[in-house]
Amino acid sequence: MNDRLEAAARLEDARDAALAALGEAVPYHRFLGVGFERLGDELTARLEYSERLVGNPILPALHGGVTGAFLEIAAITQLAWDRVWEIMQKGGPEAEAVARGEFRQWPKPVDISIDYLRSGRPRDTYARAHVVKKGRRVANVRVEAWQEERARPIAALHGHFLMPGA
């Protein structure tokens, strides 16, 4: 029984390490201040507020481009994370490499459409992506971003992403 508990704890640690490595591998994530939190396999992206992200200093409001970029990051990382999850479930050398942060199968955006619903206030922003359909070559993803209240989204994205190796 103890062995099983230990194995489960090791797997959780490996997943945390793989997610941290995935997030930190991308320079643009660090530049914007984007991190990722997970509960089980569910991922939430977090954009830490900073003055550098402001588009309109009078309101002040987040730059629309930053909000758009954040939604795009949430979509791409969700798809990458789903792949990492699969690899880690299988185990073996590929899973060990992924846990060390060696991941090269980033999906690429084909097209995205962003709706701006409310202006982004000077505070942290969160986003969660939902993969509507994952085909062999293309995935369809929807993302919503919110700040204080989940029920009051500030922006939404839907888009298509080319899966690596397609």
Binding site: V26, Y28, H63, G64, G65, V66, E72, I73
Partner: peptide, 27 residues
């Protein structure tokens, strides 16, 4: 700018940078 890279392997800028540029240009 290396800080804006989306794919560390290839050094290609993140799509989000292009999004920010196009949004600002249209505005």
């Amino acid at each position: 700018d290396a800080r804006l890279v989306g794919d560390p392997e290839s050094g290609v800028l993140h799509g989000g940078v292009v999004t920010a540029l196009l949004d600002t240009a249209c505005g």
